[in-house]
Write a protein that binds this DNA or RNA. Sequence first.
RNA 1: GCGCCCGUAGCUCAGCUGGAUAGAGCAUCGGACUUCUAAUCCGACGGUCGAGGGUUCGAAUCCUUCCGGGCGCGCCA
Length: 581
Amino acid sequence: MPPYTGLLEMPKPLATAQPNGLDFFAAPIRAALAASLDVDESLLQLERPRQEALGQFALPCFRFAKAAGKNPAELAANWAEAFSVEHITATAAGPFLNFSIDEDRLAAVVLESALREDFATGNEDCTTVVEFSSPNIAKPMHVGHMRTTVIGAALARFYTRLGHHVIKINHIGDWGSQFGKLVAAWQRWGSNEELEKAPIAHLLALYVRYHEAEKQDESLPAEAKKAFQELESGDDNQTRATWKKFTELSLREFEQVYARFGIEFDFVRGESWYEDKLTDILTWLDSSGVLKEDAGAQIIDLTAEGIKTPCLVKTAHGTTLYATRDIAAAKSRWEEFKFDQMLYVVGAEQTLHFQQFKAALKLCGAEWQEKMEHIPFGLIRMAEGKLSTRAGRVISLSEVLDRAVELAREAVDKKNPELATKAEVAEMVGVGAVVFHDLKHQRQKDVVFDWKEVLSFEGDTGPYLQYTHARCCSILRKAERSEPVLEEIDPKLLRGGKDLFVAVGRLPQALREAAQKREPNTVAQALLKIAAAGNSYYRENRVLGLDDDALTDARLAVIDMLRRTMKLGMDLLGVPAPEEM
RNA sequence: GCGCCCGUAGCUCAGCUGGAUAGAGCAUCGGACUUCUAAUCCGACGGUCGAGGGUUCGAAUCCUUCCGGGCGCGCCA
């Protein structure tokens, strides 16, 4: 495993985060406008101009013009005339009022704030529970699990950075009638030897075999049902011991994947963890008067909440269901953590399920259900159709990572044959490519899994970000100069980097937006812009080998800012940041 | 049938709590390595934002209908 410790090094937010980056300028602009125009500051939503050349902030004047019965262009012109804030120029462009920050001032402020520990932090003091990843035991994690894992982990880091107390929960699928099937299959065809060798592969084979045999052999479903009932009985029987062994072996395999992603959970709790709470939950539901019997099963009617499909909490043969366990888990977590929000990073195909069990909780008078939010994401599909474990149409997650690392290794061999740490770097580049590919898209959209796309290392990709970071590290390594004193840098020497300063300066805003929308791609896109501006910058502005020490120091500071910002952004996303590649 | 999501350049996608000539990457074509990593940079080509209607000073963005694709709809999870 590579020495990937980036996430652990991430600076903790300070208690009093100050506005930094471009936020530093937004407040005075709004204050000045509000004061001179006598309008409420909340009405002054500063936008981003169409083109960067127009300025860093924009205010469309239409609605003010309408309210005042004036021509918007005239209004903008008047306001531009009256606007006076040091270092900021207001220009009317038709009906728009654009604000441009003096290049030197912008550079100095962004440089200073991006080098501070509290850059892009927050002090939102609240408790956020994030449930994500949640694979099923006895099945390999496939590319479908990648999205919940990678998106959930990124969101958790965002909230941590913004000051939340974050609780990461891996809700392992280790309970349900499917394990009755698995145990039944194990009793018939299981091999201890195979299990030791490759636990999940063997269990998967048993599962697939079960589903094939089930078509011919009618006694099989009964065996499976009996096995699950034995599991739920709570007795320490052979079935339970078998199931426990499956769980442990599976978790051990999952841990390897999480280690590669650099992910740790606060709680790895299977559905079975809530098992002893299920009886109480059913009693609670019953006492709330929401339970109804229907064809032998216990259901909660949700038509009052506008949901036609009822929520099933107990089957006709007495076993609990997914919804029962999710209700139990939610209630248990509420009592344990008193969260301000609980996010479920689960595929969009389960939208109805979440609506159902939230509605069920609401009917029971559990007000706190409003704090629960399903964060859906689009499906990953193969060109041939939906991924299916049963049909064998899956690509395991480790296979994807291995393939990516293999290709990364070829690239490293070719591009940097002298590198001493090729294997480690290849691991980071491969994993980074896969992770970033997932995070750069809007999470709601379905994605068709395309090897060529995922394994691309050029253009808007993870390795592009990594390359930018590595280049900075390389320049700083070769500089052989003591760290410049920030206060001594003449802002004039920072000229030529405005695009970069603007891009970096927008990161705090991007992080806040990403957290609010629960959308990692906002940070991913912002980081791509920073990398692009950075690559142009050091292409145009040579740092080393200059005659001018002051200029070298100034540019070194810029490179250091770029390096740190890239590292911060990549840490937030979970993209490893090698120092050489 | 009902419900949810998606439809932007040849391909993959940004942009979506309405705002100014719709942006990237890939692919194609052209240019840049005697100097800090060419996994890069600079440029060209490329779009009736699925279609119609509506709201609005202004719509890729909001509403609505239709078309196309995906997902879901009680004893699986």
